[in-house]
């Protein structure tokens, strides 16, 4: 019985890979993809590029709908409660890992069927070119001698950048003055304008300024060096091993109650879209690290994220559980 079913599933999966009509049969009309953030933002841009060639890959188009509000929870919630017929999927983002821990919403990855992780961005520490800090160790040593004097801009309280800096402060026993901004761009402007000592952001957000020589990377969080920046040491290599690696991430998910064949068709479809040359070109151009994971691996990753987030949120006083 089990064997038969597995064979059937494998057969169906093979069929859907081999023949285009079989794919078209899974979906009869266009799929709606809910983006919980405003049109034109990073997540929206990523989503729209991802689904640009959807018709080639799954036989139907995918329409992006921006459903915003409640710091992303409104849009994500609407996906988790949508009908599980596969015609509603959504972008889920880093915030989903933090809602429950921060007491913003009861929503968590457990309410979804994760389909594909698309991007995972580590936090990068950078300074203005004329800064006295040449390495991350310089910054830590100075902060140790002068508690609270080092100001470090981040993209918002509770963001992965803020929490990554908080973990560094906790591990090294230093006191940093965190200056949260409303997004990565104004935080970067404050650093380039010399209004704060350092910046913790996604590496993509300072890329242009590094290229023009106005900004220097000190280190990046991550298990290994960032493929686009092989010269920049990891925080561990800079002398400060970090156990809780916090990533900003973006992925696709559907409601929890989708039938297995629909889930599989979406899994396959998004795998192809994630490997589409147009999508790859955009991601590489803006230096957003492409990290594809299928639904199962993505689910495991989301579990680990919550474990890593808890001590970081506790450190900055945002843990509400």
């Amino acid at each position: 019985m089990t064997l038969d079913r597995r064979t059937l599933i494998a057969g169906a999966a093979l069929g859907s890979v081999l023949s285009a009509p079989a794919i078209a049969q899974t979906f009869q009309r266009d799929i709606t993809m809910v983006v919980p953030w405003a049109a034109g933002g990073g997540t929206d841009t990523l989503a729209r590029t991802l689904v640009k060639n959807a018709k080639q890959h799954i036989g139907v188009g995918i329409n992006v709908v921006n459903r915003t509000g409640g710091t992303g929870a409104v849009g994500m919630q609407s996906v988790s409660t949508a009908r599980g017929d596969g015609y509603t999927v959504g972008l889920i983002t880093f915030h989903l890992s933090a809602y429950r821990l921060m007491g913003l919403s009861q929503l968590s990855y457990r309410d979804f069927q994760p389909l594909a992780l698309l991007n995972r961005t580590p936090a990068a520490f950078s300074v203005k070119a004329d800064s006295p800090f040449k390495t991350l160790k310089d910054l830590v040593d100075y902060a140790k001698a002068n508690p609270g004097v080092v100001t470090i801009a981040n993209s918002g309280a509770g963001a992965n950048t803020h929490l990554s800096a908080a973990i560094l402060a906790k591990n090294t026993g230093i006191r940093l003055s965190f200056v949260p901004f409303d997004g990565g761009a104004p935080a970067r402007t404050a650093m380039v304008g010399g209004h704060v000592s350092a910046l913790v952001s996604g590496p993509d957000e300072v890329l242009q300024y590094v290229k023009t020589g106005q900004v220097r990377f000190l280190a990046m969080v991550g298990e290994q060096r960032h493929p686009s920046f092989p010269d920049v040491p990891t925080v561990a290599e800079a002398g400060f091993p970090i156990k809780e690696i916090i990533y900003d991430w973006r992925g696709v998910a559907g409601p929890k109650n989708m039938p297995a064949d629909i889930t599989r068709a979406l899994n396959d479809g998004f795998a192809k879209m994630a490997n589409d040359p147009d999508f790859i070109a955009l991601m590489d151009q803006v230096a957003l690290p492409r990290v594809y994971m299928n639904g199962a691996d993505f689910t495991t990753f989301l579990g680990t994220m919550e474990t890593s987030l808890e001590p970081a949120l506790a450190e900055v006083g945002l843990l509400r559980r």
Binding site: G69, G70, V74, Q77, M102, G103, G156, A157, H162, L318
Partner: peptide, 23 residues
């Protein structure tokens, strides 16, 4: 909505809808 610096919810009366402030 969310406290702009602290990042915790403020005057939202426990609702998700108000977490992003009044539209």
């Amino acid at each position: 909505g969310l406290d702009p610096i602290g990042g915790f919810p403020r005057f939202t009366f426990g609702t998700t809808e108000l977490a992003g402030g009044i539209a």
